[in-house]
Structures are given as structure tokens and as C-alpha cells.
Simulated assay, not measured.
Amino acid sequence: MERRESAQERVTELTGRVEAVQAKVDDATARRDAAEAELDAEAATVTKERELVAGSVPADLLKLYEKLREQQGGVGAARLYQRKCEGCHIELNITELNEVRAAAKDTVLRCENCRRILVRTAESGL
């Protein structure tokens, strides 16, 4: 009888633990599902924004960008910031910087090292 009571207590204890673990699993699953839904919504928004921007980019430039993006692991263009390509993180030498400064604003420039399209911004000072 004593063994039976002891076993029943153990079953009750283990059942409680299983229920507690299952509650944690259910909570984690709900949080994961909510995060996934949020990411899906963000991806849809970004995809729409990308389509709008891509529509305003010349076809040949978009084709070059897509080709580079495929070759460079998803990044076809990089910001030129403080004399450095943010794609490969290599600083441009003085000759390259002078070429960037001399180039017209609508000229498509490429990094000599990683070949990505360089994006000049106001912060780059070039």
C-alpha cells in the first residue's frame, strides 16, 4: 500500500512537471509563431518597397545590380563611407578617391576590390 501511495505521488509530481514543460513549450511556440508572422509582414512590406524602387532604376543598372547581388552573397551595392567601401570594408586609395570625386553624380561607380556598385551619400563627402 505504501509503495502504491509513493508511486502515485511520483506520478502526480511527474504529471505536474510534464504540464509545466508543456506550458513552456506552448508559450515558446506562440512566441515563435507571432515572430514569424511579424517577419512575414515585414518581408511583404519590404518586397513592395523594393518593387517600387526597382521600377525607377534603369533596366541595365538593375540587371548589373542583380548579377552582383548573386555573385556577392546578396549584396550588390555598398555605401562609400569615410573613404571605405562598406561591402568589402577596404579603404579606397587616393587615386580611386580622386576618380570618385571627378565622376559625375549619375556615374555608376564600382569598388575596385569587391566590384560592388558604390553608393555615394552626403555623409561620404564625395
Rank of each mutant, 00 (worst) to 15 (best):
M1H: 11
E2G: 09
R3K: 07
R3W: 01
R4H: 14
R4C: 12
E5L: 11
Q8C: 06
Q8F: 13
E9Y: 07
E9G: 00
E9S: 14
R10H: 08
R10D: 09
E13D: 05
E13H: 09
R17P: 04
R17F: 10
E19Y: 10
E19W: 05
E19P: 01
A20D: 12
V21Q: 04
V21K: 09
Q22G: 03
A23Y: 00
K24H: 07
K24L: 03
V25E: 01
V25A: 06
T29F: 07
T29I: 10
R31S: 14
R31D: 13
R32W: 10
R32E: 10
R32A: 13
D33T: 13
D33A: 11
D33V: 10
A34N: 15
A34R: 15
A35M: 13
A35L: 15
A35V: 05
E36N: 10
E36H: 10
E36Q: 10
E36M: 09
A37N: 09
E38C: 04
E38K: 15
E38Y: 06
D40V: 08
A41K: 14
A41V: 01
A41L: 09
E42S: 15
T45R: 15
T47G: 12
T47I: 03
T47M: 13
E49C: 05
R50L: 14
R50H: 15
E51M: 05
E51F: 07
V53Q: 01
G55R: 08
S56Q: 13
V57F: 06
P58A: 11
D60M: 05
D60K: 07
L61G: 00
L61Q: 00
L62C: 03
K63P: 01
Y65H: 15
Y65F: 15
K67D: 11
L68Y: 02
L68A: 04
R69E: 15
V75T: 03
A77P: 02
A77E: 01
A77Y: 08
A78K: 02
L80S: 05
Y81I: 12
Y81M: 11
R83E: 10
K84M: 15
K84N: 14
C85W: 08
C85H: 07
E86K: 09
E86R: 04
E86H: 07
G87C: 07
C88M: 12
I90A: 06
I90N: 10
E91G: 01
L92T: 06
L92E: 07
L92D: 02
L92R: 06
L92K: 05
N93P: 03
E96A: 09
E96P: 01
L97A: 07
L97V: 04
L97M: 15
N98I: 09
N98M: 13
E99G: 05
E99S: 14
V100L: 05
R101N: 09
R101E: 11
A102W: 02
A102K: 08
A103M: 08
K105L: 03
K105C: 00
K105G: 00
D106H: 13
R110C: 07
C111F: 02
E112Y: 05
E112Q: 07
N113H: 09
N113W: 03
R115W: 02
R115D: 13
R115N: 08
R116V: 09
I117F: 06
I117D: 03
L118K: 02
V119Y: 00
V119L: 15
V119I: 14
R120G: 00
T121S: 13
T121K: 02
A122F: 06
E123H: 06
E123R: 11
E123Y: 00
G125M: 03
G125K: 06
